[in-house]
Amino acid sequence: MPAIAASVGRGARLAIRDLRVGFGGVAALDGVSLDAAPGEIIGVIGPNGAGKTTLFNCISGTVRPSAGTILLDGAPLGRLPPHRRARIGVTRTFQNLALLDSLNVLDNVRLAAEQAGRQRSAAARADATRLVAALGLDAIARGPVGGLPVGTRRKVELARAIAGRPRLLLLDEPTSGLSEMETADVIAILRAQHAALGFTALLVEHQMPVVMALSDRIVALDFGRKIADGTPGAIRRDPLVLAAYLGAAS
């Protein structure tokens, strides 16, 4: 869904220039550049091992690129540590789910609200409670996150990333492992939250219908390189993208 005019200005402008990451000989990112306008949702697609998660790790600061720059509203992130990036509005979900097992559902969300938002404790708590309710998690808010089913865990992750007051939201396969109904639910949540908050977002996704439904633009990666960048319609017909996916499938 295209960014709503009213929300423009609350999302950050992201500019990535010639990003490179190597892991012992493997080039996980091999000179990737990418731009996102404030409030834009960019789908990031590519076969497994293409470097999508590594791209996210660079932006959120857990992996240090060997070369290249990442600019947020024109300011380079440089060597800013991960928690400082979160506090200026770079929040994320994790492909492999990284809920905090010692904390209950509400406290997982509340932690993000009070850390990333740097707000007063009561305000953070209220924010978290509201978000937990909005995502339909209030019945389990006081329960442990440990035994929850994947669908619910993904939603808690989503709530947590949104509680951090994102200006740039990084979503790493938010519907992976979900049923069709749960997937529709996540899409609806993302639309509503995006409309309300206007964040910029990068969305890594394997399910094409989800990418198509949410993205303003799509970027395709393969072997750490950007092989395509365009509207959903154009990407769907792009021969390089088709080859990368067919090649990965064969």
């Binding site: 600061g61 857990t62 979160a86 990284a98 905090l100 904390l103 993000a112 990333a116 740097r118 951090g164």
Partner: peptide, 11 residues
């Protein structure tokens, strides 16, 4: 629980 995740959340 998870230092990397905690860091990414602003801790």
């Amino acid at each position: 629980d998870n230092a990397l995740a905690a860091g990414a959340l602003g801790v």
